[in-house]
Computed example of a mutant assay.
Amino acid sequence: MAITAALVKELRERTGAGMMECKKALVETNGDIEVAIDNMRKSGAAKAAKKAGRVAAEGVILSRTGNGAGVLVEINSETDFVARDENFLAFANGVADLALEKGISDVETLNATEMASGETVETARANLVAKIGENITVRRVTKIEGENLGGYIHGGRIGVLVNMNGGSEELAKDVAMHVAAANPQFNKADDVDPAVIEKEKSIIRELPDMAGKPENIVEKMIGGRINKFIGEITLEGQAFVKDPSTTVGKLVKAAGADVVSYTRFEVGEGIEKKEEDFAAEVAAQMGA
């Protein structure tokens, strides 16, 4: 497989390692980026595999809650300048209000629904594109129903909805704020995919400090590190951002509550953005 500049760039972003280290790792794995990340972690070339999170689009995340339901909506623009434009924000807020009012949970239905102006969302979007001169998209919407819903928006770029049984509105909002800041991969330990745990075990087993130790000691060390790993990637196990002396799980349990689920949106996550200068730099160095 050809080792492209884009592949090297992605590995560099996800591991924080040097460019030539990334190129070497990819050559050794014939371009398999996931295996390259595992090998780099085992050798110490990468301390941790960072989430890719290739943010390409600008825009806003909006949330609305009411009458036992909540929605999160992402609306994208090409530039941050337009994302702050009053016409764009008026459109985005109108779409979020509509999504909650009509209980809409998919973009196709949302685009076909009439706004207060009498235009469908899609028509209003197209008219706004013509007015502003920049592409705008209603990218995604989700709906949550529950007993106690908490919403939190950070800077218009990260949005979270938490569905909680029991507790208070303030607690639900605090948990949503934590999810925005810490971005846990799973809600509870029982939710962690066994494959994720097995993969982490295999990586830990190959670390230099495991070499030469008796198997029973290795297993004990792996068990301790896996427990720590699960705490780091689950909402219930993470130290609460507003009070690191306790975990989110303990905080919620003390209030007699339970987090049923949560949803987190970040502007542009997963959309690749072209960065010509960097790619050209990588290509030039690889060619050399």
Results as ranks from 00 to 15, higher is better:
Thr29Glu: 15
Leu7Val: 06
Gly237Met: 03
Gly223Gln: 03
Asp174Lys: 11
Lys274Cys: 06
Val138Lys: 01
Glu101Tyr: 02
Ile104Ser: 02
Glu236Cys: 10
Glu119Ala: 11
Ala46Glu: 12
Pro244Gly: 10
Glu58Ala: 14
Asp209Asn: 15
Lys9His: 06
Met115His: 06
Lys173Asn: 08
Asn227Tyr: 00
Pro214Asn: 04
Ala126Met: 15
His178Asn: 09
Ala92Phe: 01
Ile158Thr: 12
Ile37Thr: 10
Gly270Glu: 11
Gly156Trp: 04
Thr234Glu: 10
Gly151Thr: 12
Ala180Phe: 03
Glu236Asn: 10
Gly68Met: 11
Ala181Val: 08
Ile37Val: 15
Ala172Asn: 12
Gly151Tyr: 02
Val175Ile: 15
Gly166Ser: 11
Val27Arg: 13
Ala6Asn: 11
Lys201Glu: 12
Gly66Thr: 07
Pro184Tyr: 04
Ala189Trp: 04
Lys173Trp: 00
Pro194Glu: 11
Lys220Cys: 05
Tyr152Thr: 07
Arg140Pro: 06
Lys42Ser: 10
Ala176Tyr: 04
Ile3Pro: 12
Asp243Thr: 06
Ala116Thr: 14
Val252Gln: 03
Lys213Arg: 12
Ala48His: 11
Glu101Trp: 00
Ile37Gln: 14
Ala172Lys: 07
Ala130Phe: 09
Ala83Asp: 07
Lys131Val: 04
Val82Phe: 00
Ala126Tyr: 09
Leu98Ser: 08
Ile33Ala: 11
Pro194Met: 05
Val55Leu: 08
Ala6Glu: 13
Arg64Tyr: 02
Lys51Ala: 14
Leu128Pro: 12
Val241Gly: 05
Lys143Cys: 07
Gly150Met: 05
Thr234Trp: 08
Met164Leu: 15
Ser245Thr: 15
Ala57Gly: 01
Asn76Met: 03
Val252Cys: 09
Phe88Arg: 00
Ser63Lys: 01
Lys143Ala: 14
Glu34Tyr: 08
Val60Lys: 08
Thr120Lys: 10
Ala130Asn: 14
Asp190Trp: 02
Ser168Ile: 13
